[in-house]
Design a protein around this nucleic acid. Structure first.
Lengths: 341, 341
DNA sequence: TGTAAAAATGTAACGGATTACATCGAAGTA
DNA sequence: TACTTCGATGTAATCCGTTACATTTTTACA
């Protein structure tokens, strides 16, 4: 592997001239520039970017903490980040954290060991501890998708409360009065937000909120299936299920169909996220579309602003949602269907 | 940010002693070691890993070229890689290449600019060009999932031909004589392998191969949907469709059901990959399970062997598949169903 | 032609950790 | 006591670009 000195020797110039030929060619005379360029090609010289990064103190790496890359929604966010990062000259270090706080803290530490310049966090957890705080400055971190209430941290998110309320309204308008909810983990602020929106809409419609109709899930297909199973084995009437993401909705539908229920004639099911599968399921899923790629793109742009010192304060960006009505929701049946069979 | 010199000064020792305290503590007397350790804590000193990587010439980074992180199967592979990499002290630089050769070549170049030590390629494309070849040595690259016929490159894959034959046999045993296939892109060796297995099984069963029953897809849900649409609008009888992955199978099922066909009574559909959704679809999908996480894990281990110089020649690992029979395949109907309606 | 200004190029310090080699002191041996 | 050996520690070179500053060359104009 050749280095800049060999190039300089071959071209008969100093290392500074070689460096300038690459960085600020306008400072080098055309004649010299040509000689240097030829030497570079001859030796197939590639600057050691590790040396550059070390010297400059800028790694141009961004650590991305992803709860799970297997989640289709996050996959879209990642894609958006990747494009924005490439455009800004940054590389992404994707970490599948499985939602583990310790793992996240370990990787966030890459900032301190100069392996990365910033962090994008897709979860509402602050992986930095207090003495990491850059005093009054902004943390080199942005939060996307979930809302993290760290004031020094820019955020891009959805108004989950409003979106959940819109979905609930849709169900209410169809005449549903007994709506169950399959929630995410209680630790997730997303879950809290969406539940608040759900309650808002119920209150607005003068329907009463029923704690017994709230079921826990963890955003996976299986957990949706299991929650639906619990819904089938309880005694309250239910004519619609609001699931906090599409995977759980699809899992729930699978269980409901196995019980012989027709969707949406017997029971309506709604999701959240609008993943690709939701358009090809039977029936296609009514859901909330989120601009996933835009989340990623915005997150990177916010972070780059922070890293460049352009950001004066922690901006909080809210992106728009869209209610997508497909065939998994329909009018409430005249008679509540007997679920237990 | 403190550096090793400040620590040395505070502890009243030389930088060498500090470095040794961290790297080979047994060479430092307990007394000194304690002093150094205290100084490190006092200053909250973290070694600058960029400097270490620069000096050592080892980045402990691995570039992973993923055609698309949105693919659920790849997501599982990634997870396997991540765990193995963490165990070996490597970080993953995930790149969503969208199957673009130029993008892959650009990122593979990170090896030459000393930003990464090795590459894991999940596609059958060699991103290195000839003059990158390490002469007779092994390339710092391993190929996973698809088979890339670069002799200097270790590979971990499935016997796709055998697996496809097994699936075809399953369909044949159910009495299917008119089996259509929804293929991946012709450029993918995977597609070629699976097609060969398909043909093998047909020949074995003395059924004739029919070129008109081969349909193109690109591994997405939508392409499966579209291909099924084409199947519905042609004149040959078809009682089963062998799809080259689960996404396309689910897309196809969606289209077939829209046409009023029952699965598997009217037509059988099979997939490949066994993604999570396939277990919750209606009907649950008959498919081939691949040990995705193990692919990832093996790929990393092979690469680490190469990087450590342990690998003498390019090993080709074949992992086992498993035929998962669910309810999307069933006995062929006595009378071929009229597809065009 | 002389001189100042501008352009081109060179010199060398620097960043932070590692490590070969040098040094020093203490313990061990004859 | 003199000498060897070993353990502990220090010194300084090294990895490879970048860049402030110094120096040389060219250009411009009086």
């Amino acid at each position: 592997m050749s280095n800049i000195r060999e190039v300089a020797d071959l071209a008969g110039v100093s290392v500074a001239t070689v460096s300038r030929t690459l960085q600020q060619p306008e400072l080098v005379s055309p004649k010299t520039r040509a000689r240097v360029t030829r030497a570079i090609e001859q030796l197939n010289y590639k600057p050691n970017l590790m040396a550059v990064k070390f010297r400059s103190g800028k790694t141009h790496n961004i650590v991305v903490l992803v709860p799970t890359v297997a989640n289709v929604f996050f996959a879209r966010v990642i894609r958006g980040m990747q494009e924005a990062a490439a455009a800004e000259g940054y590389s992404l270090l994707l970490v599948n954290t499985m939602g583990d706080n310790v793992t996240e803290q370990n990787y966030a530490r890459m900032i301190h060991t100069s392996q990365a310049d910033g962090v994008v966090q897709l979860r509402a957890f602050n992986p930095f501890n207090d003495n990491d705080a850059d005093d009054q400055g902004l943390l080199p971190m942005v939060n996307a998708c979930e809302i993290l209430d760290t004031p020094q941290c820019p955020t891009v998110s959805l108004d989950n409360r409003l979106a959940a309320a819109a979905m609930t309204e849709h169900l209410v308008e169809l005449g549903h009065q007994h709506i169950a909810m399959i929630k995410g983990p209680a630790s997730s602020p997303l879950t809290r937000e969406r539940m608040l929106g759900f309650k808002d809409a119920l209150r607005e419609a003068r329907l009463k909120y029923c704690e017994e109709l709230m079921f826990d899930g963890d955003f996976t297909l299986q957990s949706g299936f299991d929650a639906a199973d619990r819904i089938l084995n309880q005694s309250h009437p239910v004519s619609a299920i609001f699931c906090e993401n599409d995977e759980m909705a699809l899992g729930a539908i699978s269980r409901l169909k196995a019980a012989g229920l027709r969707i949406p004639e017997d029971i309506s099911v709604s999701g959240f996220d609008n993943i690709a599968f939701s358009n090809f399921s039977d029936p296609p899923l009514t859901t909330i579309a989120q601009p996933a790629e835009e989340f990623g793109e915005t997150a990177i742009n916010l972070l780059v602003d922070v890293l460049k010192g352009k950001a004066k304060r922690a901006v909080k960006v809210i992106l728009p949602y869209q209610l997508i009505i497909r065939n998994s929701t329909g009018p409430a049946p005249a008679q509540p269907v007997n679920l237990t069979r």
